Amino acid sequence: MAAGESEAQYGPGGRGFYGSVTVSERGQIVIPAQARRDLGIAPGDKLLVLGDPEQGLALMTVDRLMRTLRGSTDLLSQIQGHVPAEPDRPAEE
C-alpha cells in the first residue's frame, strides 16, 4: 500500500469509506485508488458532480446515472399501470 493510502472500510450494501482527501488550490482532489478499483473508475471516465445542501457532494459515472434513470423510468411505468388515470385538470393560474 502506498504512503498516505489507507485501507477502505465497508458497511452495509458494500458502501465504502475510503478516507479523506484535500482540495488543492485549483479545486482538485484525488480519488483514492481503492475507490477507483472498487467502482471501476478509469482514466478518461467522465464523472458527474452532484450536490445537495444537506448531504454534500456525490460523484457518479454517466453510465451509472443512465442505468439508474432507466430503472426509475421502468419503475414509474409499472406504478402508473396501477394508478387510475386522473381526469384533465384546468391549468392553474
Score class of each variant (00 low, 15 high):
residue 1 M to W: 10
residue 2 A to V: 08
residue 3 A to L: 14
residue 5 E to M: 14
residue 5 E to G: 04
residue 5 E to T: 13
residue 6 S to K: 11
residue 8 A to H: 02
residue 8 A to S: 09
residue 9 Q to M: 10
residue 10 Y to G: 00
residue 10 Y to F: 15
residue 10 Y to M: 04
residue 11 G to P: 00
residue 11 G to Y: 03
residue 11 G to S: 06
residue 13 G to Y: 06
residue 14 G to L: 01
residue 16 G to K: 00
residue 17 F to W: 10
residue 18 Y to H: 02
residue 18 Y to F: 12
residue 19 G to D: 03
residue 21 V to Q: 07
residue 22 T to H: 11
residue 22 T to P: 00
residue 23 V to S: 11
residue 24 S to Q: 13
residue 25 E to D: 15
residue 27 G to T: 10
residue 27 G to Y: 13
residue 28 Q to I: 09
residue 29 I to W: 13
residue 29 I to V: 15
residue 33 A to K: 10
residue 33 A to Q: 09
residue 33 A to D: 11
residue 35 A to S: 03
residue 36 R to G: 01
residue 36 R to H: 00
residue 36 R to D: 02
residue 37 R to Q: 12
residue 37 R to F: 05
residue 38 D to R: 03
residue 38 D to L: 00
residue 39 L to E: 01
residue 39 L to Q: 02
residue 40 G to Y: 01
residue 40 G to H: 02
residue 40 G to F: 03
residue 41 I to R: 02
residue 41 I to W: 06
residue 42 A to V: 11
residue 42 A to Q: 12
residue 42 A to H: 12
residue 46 K to C: 08
residue 46 K to L: 12
residue 50 L to N: 04
residue 51 G to P: 02
residue 52 D to Q: 07
residue 54 E to Y: 09
residue 55 Q to H: 11
residue 58 A to C: 08
residue 59 L to K: 00
residue 59 L to M: 03
residue 59 L to F: 13
residue 60 M to D: 00
residue 61 T to C: 01
residue 63 D to T: 09
residue 63 D to R: 06
residue 63 D to V: 05
residue 64 R to G: 04
residue 64 R to Y: 07
residue 64 R to E: 10
residue 64 R to M: 05
residue 65 L to S: 02
residue 66 M to Y: 06
residue 69 L to V: 15
residue 70 R to H: 14
residue 71 G to D: 12
residue 73 T to P: 00
residue 73 T to Y: 10
residue 75 L to I: 05
residue 75 L to E: 12
residue 77 S to H: 12
residue 77 S to F: 08
residue 78 Q to D: 14
residue 78 Q to G: 09
residue 81 G to D: 08
residue 81 G to R: 07
residue 81 G to V: 07
residue 81 G to Q: 11
residue 82 H to W: 11
residue 83 V to Y: 04
residue 84 P to I: 05
residue 86 E to W: 05
residue 89 R to K: 14
residue 90 P to V: 03
residue 92 E to A: 10
residue 93 E to W: 10
